[in-house]
Design a protein around this nucleic acid. Structure first.
Lengths: 269, 269
DNA sequence: TTTCAGCGTCTCATTGAGTGAGACGTGACG
DNA sequence: CGTCACGTCTCACTCAATGAGACGCTGAAA
């Protein structure tokens, strides 16, 4: 019964055991999500439970809860657990929101101001490049049409090619195998072999260009934003009409972009 | 709240479902995280509580829980809630983990662009067709959350009939024996014999059609994705309103679908 | 074929984490 | 100096989460 123990804390006899009873459903749910997100591949539920020290039914209950929300999914062949599509949506939203914080925002603003051109930050999501943030220059008559949240292809944009170039070999070949790629302009690289060569060149240079490969008359330069582990997790790019930005200005804009990338890398762990 | 009226559910502020007593801490916690992630700027706890229909103390408790985990943080001046640094780390992990979907998405995107219509990739799981991925042609006003992961019947969809047609005889007859099938529309094939005839025709043609058999006014074309051993392991389909896609366009879309299927078969090998 | 082992699913008594109305503190603004 | 709005605290209540154990399925070994 509910014995009203008069002196609750009088007896120090029952101290908190080492690390046992910290069992909140929400904590464990997030732990599972993070585990799957940081895993190198699909995970068996058994592995999840063992790693986090969860009892068998509890692990299944929590995993299934996440699957119902779409945050996780099952590999339909192996029944293993993988990241779900809702999680990717959430992740894009999180990154976008974390970039809208004032101190971070000023970085992109400064880069754009230094260059006098439109700049944006993007990540790779499900085979597309998605723009997380963007600062436009308004005093030029030529405006470009891609706002925050819009998605552009990988194979014909500076950012997209940069991501492709820095992907693990296995994934890059899988993606290249999914070509032939749509020709957006006469300059688009549609041949997987030609694209592969371009990617090698990008990986060697450390930056990526888009010379009218996606939109006629538009030139882009992109550099990677690295995580603390040195992995490319995002990119920052400048885009402008080719009359104002072309190969001859690349060496000028690179240091400015790189400075911005370095400042932003702290935001991505 | 404004009105001191007893907490009748007649308040018209929240599109909450009828079931009020359903209250899971984890669900609400994720709802808060998603709300902050999709917000345009910092949010007051009051706003969060009001938007999600949470009582005052509950909103604070859940928000503070997320802040303790580092997933949220407070704007140091306004005390408003913003995205935390841990959330950004989680998001990067999620995007990286979801890269395994990128090749499929990439192909699907190209096919959908070529056709100008919504396309999807699905597999057979249990007795249902499950959509693995989907690319919609509509612009991105966030209406695409339905579709991926959802299940549709076998007997009245282009993909489902395609899978049925390519199944081993024993299993096909077993599934056909499982009954008269539900009539989703006036065009649905509900008779096992009629369906069996249709399946033979599909097997001979090598592609499958759905002429308003599942949803009135919607026409679908599906072709198989073959493994390296020649087995049908998945399918790719296009679906569109019948005014834009019907029998007369089938010969047009087939080569494009087949090209996509071929590219995808490498991903499923 | 049978046997076995490993996983996933289900049940259910137990309990404690979550809940939310209400009281209280606090800071801004006229 | 009210007062108004928002955050914090308290505390019974209770329902959702928990996890041991039983059960069932599937696939591999014998």
């Amino acid at each position: 019964m509910k014995t009203r123990s008069t002196q609750t804390s009088a007896t120090a006899n029952v101290p908190d055991d080492a690390a046992k009873p910290k069992a909140a459903a929400t904590d464990r749910t997030f732990a599972i999500l993070e585990l799957v997100a940081s895993a190198s591949g699909p995970l068996a539920v058994k592995t999840i439970g063992a790693t986090l020290g969860l009892p068998k039914p509890t692990a299944h209950r929590l995993v299934n809860g996440l699957i119902e929300k779409g945050l996780l999914a099952r590999d339909l062949e192996t029944r293993d657990v993988i990241i779900g599509v809702e999680a990717a949506r959430l992740a894009v939203g999180i990154l976008r929101a974390s970039l809208s914080r004032a101190p971070v925002r000023s970085v992109l603003r400064a880069v754009s101001a230094d260059l006098g051109e439109t700049c944006n930050v993007g990540v790779l999501d499900g085979g597309d490049v998605v723009y997380l943030d963007r600062v436009e220059v308004e005093h030029w008559p030529l405006r470009l049409q891609f706002g925050v949240g819009s998605r552009v292809p990988m194979h014909c944009t500076a950012m997209g090619k940069l991501f492709l170039a820095t992907l693990p070999d296995a994934m890059r070949s899988r993606l290249l195998a999914s070509g032939p790629f749509s020709a957006q302009t006469a300059h688009t690289l549609t041949d997987p072999a030609a694209l592969a060569a371009e990617l090698e060149s990008i990986a060697a240079r450390g930056y990526s260009l888009d010379d009218e490969e996606y939109v006629v008359g538009v030139f882009c330069v992109a550099v990677p934003i690295l995580s603390s582990t040195g992995r490319t997790v995002a990119a920052i790019a400048v885009q402008a009409p080719k009359v104002r930005l072309s190969h001859d200005r690349v060496e000028q804009v690179l240091p400015i972009l790189r400075r911005g990338a370095e400042a932003l890398s702290a935001q991505f762990g």
